[in-house]
Simulated scan of single mutants.
Amino acid sequence: MTERAGKVTGAVTVSVDGYSAGLHQTEERPFGDDGGDGTGAGLHAWMFETPDENRAEVEQMTAADAFVMGRNMFGPVRGAWDRPWNGWWGDDPPFHAPVFVLTHHAREPQPMAGGTTYHFVTDGIVAALDRARAAAGAGEVSVLGGATTLNQYLAAGLIDELRLHIAPLTLCAGTRLFEGVPALRLEQVSARAASLVTHVTYRVLR
């Protein structure tokens, strides 16, 4: 594995009880029972209903020089992976940088409008991160999730900074951050309360 250059961050929106998605996820409802209609309107209301209040955090989420995401964050849980599919993010995704998608299904790189190119990585989290670091140079790599992917990187000790966007609701079941992750020591870097979310950044201590 290459030596660390830029910072590796992890970012995710979670409920107060730690879930990044509810049960019953489908192609039409990627966040499942998320306190809204399943399209993110519950957990992610802070992005859609109060964007001006949270502009700095929204912009920060796509400001890295390379990204890593899990297959489910790129595309649907089931049903559409083997047909022509540009992912959840439309024809001009907000990343404008290389995105390395963890998957068991090999696929050619997929260039998109605006400078985003999806690269599909079949040989695990370390390989995906190495490729993202090489693409980012001395810049930041962001592991955007979902929680299952972020948990793997946290468990492997590969995250330097964790950025949580905590929505004021509970889901009680679903996909949970920190599931299967050993105990962590975190140092709070910043915290900011907004009307529909609290943004907290932690440094992961080693």
Rank of each mutant, 00 (worst) to 15 (best):
G75E: 07
T148W: 10
A128Q: 05
R131G: 06
D160S: 11
V58W: 13
R185W: 04
L102Q: 06
Q110W: 05
W81D: 14
F120W: 00
V126E: 15
A134K: 14
A194Y: 02
P168V: 02
A136R: 00
R176I: 05
E179H: 13
R78A: 15
H119F: 10
G70H: 13
P168M: 09
V16P: 06
A127C: 01
G38Y: 06
I125P: 10
G22D: 11
M112K: 07
G18D: 10
G115R: 10
G139K: 00
R71M: 07
L102S: 05
E108N: 13
G18C: 08
L164P: 00
A128M: 03
G75P: 04
I166K: 00
V200K: 04
R192S: 09
A183F: 01
A106I: 04
A106V: 01
N54W: 03
S195M: 10
A155H: 10
A167Q: 11
P93N: 12
V204T: 10
L177W: 09
P30D: 09
E27L: 14
Q60D: 15
A66Y: 11
R83D: 02
Q60N: 14
P182A: 13
A21V: 06
A106D: 13
D92C: 12
W85M: 08
G75Q: 08
P111Q: 08
V8Y: 08
G10I: 04
P168C: 05
R163A: 07
V68S: 05
A191F: 06
A106S: 07
A191P: 03
V197S: 06
T62R: 07
V68A: 02
R206H: 11
G174L: 02
R55I: 10
T2N: 15
G124H: 04
D82R: 12
R71H: 03
Q25A: 14
V16H: 06
A156E: 08
H119C: 01
Y118N: 07
V181L: 05
